[in-house]
């Protein structure tokens, strides 16, 4: 089979394929033989989503919004277009909405029905995001879930939970942490985590003072 080179042979003891592995291989071989899928396209898809698309993209969007008020205004007004300005477009991100976290409002994102997630800016979702425990509890007990992720919100902070759909995908714009005043856009982007853009974490202040910050 065309993908034989990708299978792990070296060193690992051989074992029978699981039922799932057999079925994947059966479908791939049949689809390839019938010319319904192109083996090169398969490898390109895997490479794209494994190495090229991921939360570093979203982090660049957030950092730009932190340093450029005009960009931030465009982002909150028409997220799809503003994100496309940075070159991030494509499937599962056709209709983007950006949600701004503030000292009084905390947004978090879930997909209770499946796994809808903004692929162009965050890549493919982590397992916990797609799992029944998160999907069920994010809407039932958001503060409890946030607590498990290490986010303790004061009572006065309003929590808004956004349930994604196959049409609309959300990206949280987290609050810029204190102590980052002198930082460059690139340095800021490095602080932004995937979880902060799902809304289950805050962006932590830098460990060391930024360049230009008085010691």
């Amino acid at each position: 089979m065309s993908h034989e080179h990708r299978h792990e042979h070296g060193g690992t003891p051989q074992r029978p394929l699981t039922e799932t592995e057999l079925r994947v291989r059966a479908l791939e071989s049949l689809l390839t033989e019938k010319g319904l899928v192109d083996p090169k396209a398969l490898d390109a898809l895997i490479d794209t989503y494994e190495t090229k698309v991921g939360p570093r993209n979203g982090a660049r969007v957030v950092a730009r919004a932190w340093v450029d008020p005009a960009y931030k205004a465009r982002l909150l007004n028409d997220a799809t277009a503003a994100i496309a300005e940075l070159g991030y477009t494509g499937r599962q991100g056709e209709e983007m909405v950006v949600l701004e976290n503030t000292p009084t409002v905390h947004n978090m994102v879930v997909c209770t029905l499946c796994s809808c997630y903004p692929w162009p800016v965050l890549g493919l979702p982590p397992v916990w995001y797609k799992s029944p425990p998160y999907r069920s509890r994010a809407v039932l007990d958001p503060r409890g879930v946030l607590g498990e992720f290490g986010v303790a919100l004061p009572d006065g902070v309003e929590v808004r939970v956004w349930d994604s759909t196959s049409e609309v995908r959300y990206l949280v714009l987290p609050e810029r942490p204190p102590g980052t005043e002198g930082m460059s856009e690139g340095e800021l982007a490095a602080l932004v985590t995937r979880d902060s853009m799902i809304g289950v974490a805050r962006v932590a202040p830098p460990v060391r003072p930024a360049a230009g910050t008085p010691a």
Partner: peptide, 23 residues
């Protein structure tokens, strides 16, 4: 049940997941 998270989670957890995604 509890939400189980994985530090430094890989995009795919097995070769068959890559292939299932791609096909």
């Amino acid at each position: 049940g509890p939400i189980v998270r994985e530090e430094n989670e890989p995009v795919f957890h097995a070769e068959w997941e890559r292939r299932a995604f791609a096909i």
